[in-house]
Amino acid sequence: MADKEREKCLKKAKKVHEYNFVYDTIEVVVSLTAGFTAGSAALVGWGLDSIIEVISASTLWWRLKGELEGISSEKVEKRKKITLYVIASSFLIVSAFITYDSVTKLIKEETADWSTMGIVILIVSLVINPILIWYKYRYGNRLDSEALKADAKDTFVCLYQTVAVLGGLLAVRYLGWWWVDPVAALLIVPYALKEGWEAFRNGRRITYNG
């Protein structure tokens, strides 16, 4: 890829992550507020996954900004490595919390309350996240960036969880299945751990001097 074309892709990828950061910050605030208010493990877990999105968007913006500013190739590689490690660590932390919260609610047989606010943000995310995934994969492939591809997978995790959480809340509301909410939250854990491990492995492969 020519230098000018790469610079153009870097700028566009950076802009995508700026939009991603703004939207996911809103998503975190709304989902956690709704989740804790309704006592929904699924909504809280979904909100925590959105925090990973905020972290990923921030670290990737930092990595892309560095390359655009012309920092050395060694520093670019270092930022790539840090970005992937941040993503991997975030997946692990969120997986641990979701597991603890969901198992606790299953043991106590706690039922989530209905949350209109939660339903609205879930539906909005069903529209926004596929768009973000498409752009992240596009620029990840064009820039040959494992960090961008990992972040796209992170957003896909969020999309997958959105469907599970939305289905869980509707099942609790209309079918009275109290256990669906924590189970819906647990469904995301295996996939999140898998993607976290992959991000960690990709980070380990990156080498640099200095």
Rank of each mutant, 00 (worst) to 15 (best):
W62Y: 14
W62S: 09
R63V: 07
R63G: 03
L64Q: 09
K65M: 11
G66S: 06
E67R: 12
L68Y: 04
L68H: 08
L68G: 09
L68C: 08
G70N: 04
G70T: 03
G70H: 04
G70P: 03
G70W: 01
I71H: 05
I71G: 08
I71M: 08
I71Y: 01
S72I: 02
S73E: 15
S73M: 12
E74C: 07
E74Y: 04
E74Q: 14
E74G: 08
K75L: 10
K75C: 05
K75A: 10
K75N: 11
K75V: 04
E77A: 11
E77G: 05
E77T: 02
K78Y: 02
R79E: 15
K80L: 05
K80V: 00
K80T: 03
K80N: 08
K81C: 04
K81S: 05
I82D: 13
I82P: 09
I82C: 10
I82K: 12
T83R: 05
L84Q: 10
Y85A: 12
V86Q: 10
V86M: 14
V86K: 13
V86E: 07
I87C: 00
I87W: 01
I87E: 00
I87R: 01
A88H: 02
A88D: 01
A88F: 00
A88Y: 01
S89A: 15
S89M: 12
F91A: 09
F91G: 03
F91M: 08
F91C: 11
L92N: 04
I93D: 04
I93C: 09
V94L: 13
V94M: 13
A96M: 06
A96C: 06
F97E: 13
I98T: 04
I98M: 07
T99D: 15
T99F: 08
T99H: 08
Y100G: 02
Y100E: 05
Y100A: 08
Y100M: 06
D101L: 14
D101C: 11
D101R: 11
S102R: 04
V103P: 12
T104G: 12
T104Q: 15
K105N: 04
K105P: 00
K105G: 01
L106D: 01
L106K: 03
I107Q: 10
K108G: 07
E109D: 10
E109F: 10
E109N: 12
T111N: 13
T111R: 15
T111M: 14
A112G: 02
A112P: 02
